[in-house]
Design a protein around this nucleic acid. Sequence first.
DNA 1: CGTTTGTTGGCACTCTCTGCCACTAATTGA
DNA 2: TCAATTAGTGGCAGAGAGTGCCAACAAACG
Lengths: 197, 197
Amino acid sequence: MSDEQRQRQRVDISRHAVRLFSEQGVAATSGEQIAHAAGVSERTFWRYFPQKEACVEPLLTKMVDAFCAVLLDWPAELELIDHLREAYSPLLDSASDEDIEAVLAVVRLTHHEPALRAAYLMLRERAEDALADVLAQRMGRPVVTIDVRVRAAAMSSVLKVATDDIARASAEGITRDALDAHREQIAGALRGLSLSL
Amino acid sequence: MSDEQRQRQRVDISRHAVRLFSEQGVAATSGEQIAHAAGVSERTFWRYFPQKEACVEPLLTKMVDAFCAVLLDWPAELELIDHLREAYSPLLDSASDEDIEAVLAVVRLTHHEPALRAAYLMLRERAEDALADVLAQRMGRPVVTIDVRVRAAAMSSVLKVATDDIARASAEGITRDALDAHREQIAGALRGLSLSL
DNA sequence: CGTTTGTTGGCACTCTCTGCCACTAATTGA
DNA sequence: TCAATTAGTGGCAGAGAGTGCCAACAAACG
């Protein structure tokens, strides 16, 4: 089976899982239930997702990957703020509208479901590592340097707060304006912490 | 049974658990094993710790609580950096030497044990909330304000990086000098992000 | 001293997750 | 074209993680 087929299968299962999670809660949703909803055997489900909380991962990585992609073609001569303004329409480019809604729904879910929050924070830390790589290159320092790590962590936490905020704000539907405000909020906070480079 | 007796019991179990975790890994350590090592029944163990990863919590909160306590009597007229220099001898005041070693050992463990890392990150986020409370009061803004949250998150992430760093650096024993350097590192990073207030 | 309250341990049970194996489908190679 | 290999799937059994329930026991209280 091709890699992308596998990937699509993963995302498909993930969608069913997230729907069930938000309808019934995580604890009340069994692996068997998710597997049945997605039309695979329970054994196959556990092979795709070693823990059931990991079901949120495919959806959430879409958001993280979108940001990382923008970071990766951050031209050397531009301030980060300006680059974000140009290139970062959060989520919109890389995903369908339903996926944006789903991602934000998951982020909202994490506030009531500790198990999902933990998974979310782990994912964010992986993203922070990617961010540290980009920053290290840009600052001409090894990745392990303290000020590289601090800067990456601080930027990452700005993103976390902004994401939580937009998820909360968009509980009843998401608008293009809200997303733009989200980007400006990130830009403003980065400037406030002199993180823009 | 008194609260502190219960608390001591918790910490006691926690110590056994952490020792076993570091000797055998988390996955290879069963709840039954921890319970037996700590001299309680399995049923009682699960009552003290609803998930076995939570065993690291009592030790880790010592570290977080120490920092929060320092924050809480941060006098209004002092810069945070200066207050830290005066009042923050990390961990040393509120815990025994073995506990410092144990806490740092746990932090090191979290780098190889995803389940523990997740628990650690959740705990840090609880600490971030406490931090946000203090900052909000000091900045004269509601806790939910974005710039309060951003500032709290950024400060929290500085602490995270610094803590990971000192844990790594002190793999073969911890010295007073290392802890002082740790504090100066925090102070420097806070200054770098103009977070000092 | 009897009652109440809270803690403990045992038991049975569900759910999570893994190892193993047999089955099937696609790919490869002669 | 026909094996032989390869990879994914599902079923089954079983260990471990937790939970609900109940009986036993101890401390506090009237």
